[in-house]
Design a protein around this nucleic acid. Structure first.
Length: 443
RNA sequence: CGGAGUGUGGCUCAGCCUGGUAGAGCACCUCGUUCGGGACGAGGGGGUCGCAGGUUCAAAUCCUGCCACUCCGACCA
């Protein structure tokens, strides 16, 4: 992408509404724009990151055996009356009336709808297990939206729903998502820690929040420091193997880890003092097993081998991709701007032409741009006629992992400068070596 | 919903107390000189001062109401 043909409205000054780093940097880097309290437009740069996050989420959901569909944002109130949540949900649910005065709502979650879909097609235990997910906008009318995307009212959510004949099946479904979540966040450069959680309005009795540690996190969390060193499951993990998954889940739940809601001072105190971690955390995922809470009232039943119909055991599993954009920035930034981990970076590399219009720099940049494009590398070519200082500042702000500086001084020796955003390390090398250095990031 | 605050060119803000008909920096446009870490000069465009009433000869400024947004709290993916 040539910057001259892109839409990247970066701001030199911080809009005053931004309190935390991620919000500030997203506004400055031209990733998002606030449209109302807790409601944002994603500008092209922000959308690129969001899409990369969604791609990773999809790949890991698919790997774990979940199947994607897409449900609408608008739902009928009647559906929610069936589960009893229409009245229970409260003012957080945005209620709407259509022209015929029918009661509708903008979905805050989709348990009811997915249960309705399930019950209209699935009759037999032979069709199970089943896990259906979608990635769709949700709206929760938060009392107090804040921190930009971190706590918006409208947010993008991946929500998966599992259906099984019994608890044992449901537990395995839960474990599949548990492992998929560890992998998903790890692929974005994040170390997530599953913590015992309140199951909240969704209900149920088995639930984990996936928390990443960050100073600006919304909740206070406590855990054993060994979690920070646990190995994340490899891509070849066998999601069909009950014992293999259970072993992973057992390891990742073996030590103390809880948010302040569920904090147990006694258990925490039992940890060796040097192993105690007390920190702030950001919730990036939340998984629940809730049994027959919805299948029973909504009559989502399947016939077992004995011919008897029983309500299915369900679980739901959420990840907030829009929140993850913010969470990743919270984890990876410095004074100058964002430092994207490669797998979610909006562009992998930026070419900075230090002398736009130069008889040497222009052709060198064009050749470099073409070579990177041929390799399939997402490249942002900063081809505007700006001072080098402005180009550096912008490259640092938007935080692409690699910068290639093409200037007359280096070209005189046949070299360009390759700079890594993560640690600022720079190296002079030929353009060909620079191209060779960059690879398409693996799954 | 309780408490505190803010609303003035695209952005950050001054002006408001003590009414006299709108400013600065950045950004933008033109020309020139520049160009290896956010250049400089000259010229130029752009604002019914959140909205609606009221007071006044006169309102960005004072009064009333409303709206939007932010922060603290209760609540939460």
């Amino acid at each position: 992408m040539r910057l001259s043909r892109f839409f990247l409205p970066i701001l030199r000054e911080t809009p005053k509404e931004a309190e935390i780093a991620s919000h500030r940097l997203m506004l400055r880097a031209g990733m998002i724009r606030q449209e109302a309290a807790g409601v944002y437009s994603f500008l092209p740069l922000g959308l690129r990151v969001l899409q990369k996050i969604c791609r990773i989420v999809r790949e890991e959901q698919d790997r774990a055996g979940a199947i994607e569909l897409l449900m609408p944002t608008i739902q009928a109130a009647d559906l929610w009356r069936e589960s009893g949540r229409y009245d229970a949900y409260g003012k957080e649910m945005l209620r709407i009336k259509d022209r015929h005065d029918r009661e509708m709502l903008y979905g805050p979650t989709n348990e009811e709808m997915i249960t309705a879909i399930f019950r209209s097609y699935v009759r037999s235990y032979k069709d199970l297990p089943l896990n259906l997910y979608h990635i769709q906008w949700k709206f929760r009318d938060e009392v107090r939206p804040r921190f930009g995307l971190m706590r918006g009212r409208e947010f993008l959510m991946k929500d998966a729903y599992s259906f099984d004949v019994d608890f044992a099946g449901a537990k395995h479904a839960y474990n599949r998502m548990f492992v998929a979540y560890l992998r998903t966040f790890a692929r974005m450069g994040l170390r997530s820690i599953p913590m015992v959680a309140e199951s909240g309005p969704i209900g149920g009795n088995l639930s984990h929040e996936f928390i990443i540690l960050a100073d600006t996190g919304e909740s206070e969390v406590f855990c054993h420091s060994d979690y920070l060193g646990f190995e994340v499951p490899k891509p070849d993990v066998d999601f069909g193997s009950v014992p293999a998954l259970q072993a992973i889940v057992d390891q990742w739940t073996s030590l103390y880890a809880a948010t302040s809601d569920k904090h147990d001072e006694l258990a925490y105190g039992a940890i060796a003092p040097e192993k105690r971690v007390s920190a702030r955390g950001i919730e990036v995922g939340h998984i629940f097993y809730f049994g027959t809470k919805y299948s029973e009232p909504m009559k989502a039943v399947v016939a077992g081998p004995d011919g008897v119909e029983r309500p299915v055991h369900m679980g739901s599993y959420g990840i907030g991709p829009s929140r993850l954009v913010a969470a990743i920035i919270e984890a990876f930034h410095d004074e100058a701007g964002i430092k994207w981990p490669e797998p979610v970076a909006p562009f992998q590399v930026a070419i900075l032409n230090l002398k736009q219009g130069g008889s040497d720099t222009d052709p060198a940049c064009e050749a470099l741009y073409a070579a990177l494009a041929a390799k399939g590398i997402d490249t942002l070519y900063h081809d505007l006629d700006e001072r080098p200082g402005a180009k550096f500042a912008m490259a640092d702000l938007i935080g692409v992992p690699w910068q290639i500086l093409v200037g007359p001084r280096g070209l005189a020796e046949g070299k360009v400068e390759v700079k890594r955003r993560s640690d600022g390390q720079r190296e002079l090398m030929s353009a060909a070596d620079a191209v060779a250095r960059l690879t398409v990031s693996p799954a």
